[in-house]
Nucleic acid binder design. Structure first.
Lengths: 239, 239
DNA sequence: CAGTTACGCTACGGGTCGTAGCGAAAGGGT
DNA sequence: ACCCTTTCGCTACGACCCGTAGCGTAACTG
């Protein structure tokens, strides 16, 4: 009970004395390569086995590492898998496609192709499911995925406001709060719709769907079926 | 290998010779009460333990039933849990609140309160996660949850069209296909947004959020921050 | 050099899974 | 009534996984 491990609530990796960095640490350092090998092995195991059949022993064997080494860094399967998958979300970008609708379609398609990968598919939902009975895991998802990816919404809004496609945020404290709520709302709508389409409905998120979705998001339900044309022209939206 | 069990792909319950109903069956009939007890015990176990720690032995003990009885009816944990939870979704209704926006807010709040229950929370996501590597389970989710609940969207659209709030569906084969796509799209947007807000972002789906969401859905992004007033009046939407 | 920490390895207790085998109970068909 | 079929409860079982303890060794610090 003396030199016991502590879990860092931010990074989630276990570290002696609750410290994270290599600062002031004595003794043999952790192998950074082992970290990479373990996370890579975890993703590979997710692809082949899926969340349900993934085992810690299997991951250890794939990574060429002792099982005890896994438990020195992650408290359980949930946290390991979350770390293995969360980094993939940082690949998402928001290239400037010229107009808000095209930007939305672009990020939708990017997110969809990320969700099409079997490792993210199976892991993301499982981790969220576990997070409903694991407060620490919930906080970790929030900081490792949710809050990080809101950057895409914020950036998209700023661009659209600069283009004059959206009104500027109202000033003042109340205005800032409203803007924050709007960002959260839009994030939930976009990410939620894509996830639901891809994983629950289990139907493809292709260009046609992205176009219809972005049309709905921009114009609302009343404008969805208004002009006949816009959803019927399956041309590339970037042009 | 002769009198082997078959899984019925529709109901998912195992039954001898692949038959479902009591038609032409001989021998001792299945105990309907055992079914009810098992599904109830499953929900209770989900509430107390969550998906991850739920065990078949525990469910059997709670239901006052032998473990073997469980395996005679469900092939595994996934299918049992899905059946136990799917029926809860049939409680959803769409009371006529007079206008489309109020109808949307109503169904959002209902869906949110369903997702607030610990048994649905933890089970729904877990089952979806498993379905990414289990084709049979995926089909079962589709028929037991997704397709069934689209009725709410269809009904809501019909009402709104009758009120003149939405344009009528275009006629012809192409028009019907477009209407079908629209229903799927709207379903994914509404259900996805609520699920994402409640489980991933893990923030409350309250009346304020429902109001902002329905406003966004109706008017689109451009109209979200247009008139200052509508999101600032936290009055009950039913009045 | 000593001190400290990470690592690989083995072994283990505790738990779950899903099945097999048994005798008894509950129905249907004739 | 009688046989046939199927379900039920029970026990037992092998296989597997979890997460940890203990040990000797490797790596890095001052």
């Amino acid at each position: 009970m003396v030199a016991r491990m502590h879990r860092c609530p931010l990074t989630g990796t276990r570290s002696p004395e609750g410290r994270t960095g290599p600062r002031g640490r004595t003794g043999r350092p952790r192998s950074a390569e082992a970290d990479r090998a373990i996370l890579g092995a975890t993703r590979a195991a997710l692809v082949e086995l899926g969340w349900g059949k993934l085992t810690m022993s299997d991951v250890a064997a794939r990574a060429g590492v002792a099982k005890t080494t896994l438990y020195r860094r992650w408290a359980n399967k949930n946290e390991l898998v979350l770390d293995a998958v969360a980094v993939l979300f940082d690949e998402l970008e928001l290239p400037d496609r010229g107009c808000l609708q095209a930007d939305i379609e672009g990020v939708v398609l990017q997110f969809a192709s990320l969700l099409a990968r079997p490792e993210t598919k199976t892991a993301l939902m499982a981790v969220v499911a576990e997070s409903t009975t694991d407060e620490a895991l919930r906080l970790r998802i929030r900081s490792a995925v949710v809050e990080r990816q809101k950057r895409l919404v914020i950036l998209g809004r700023e661009r659209a406001q600069a283009r004059g496609e959206l009104p500027p945020d109202p000033s003042g404290e109340e205005g800032a709060a409203a803007a924050g709520r709007a960002v959260g709302l839009i994030f939930d709508v976009i990410a939620g719709a894509v996830v639901h389409r891809a994983l629950v409905s289990a139907e493809p998120v292709d260009e046609l769907w992205a176009q219809q979705f972005s049309t709905l998001l921009l114009a609302g339900l009343s404008g969805l079926a208004g002009p006949d044309a816009p959803a019927a022209e399956p041309g590339p939206p970037g042009a």
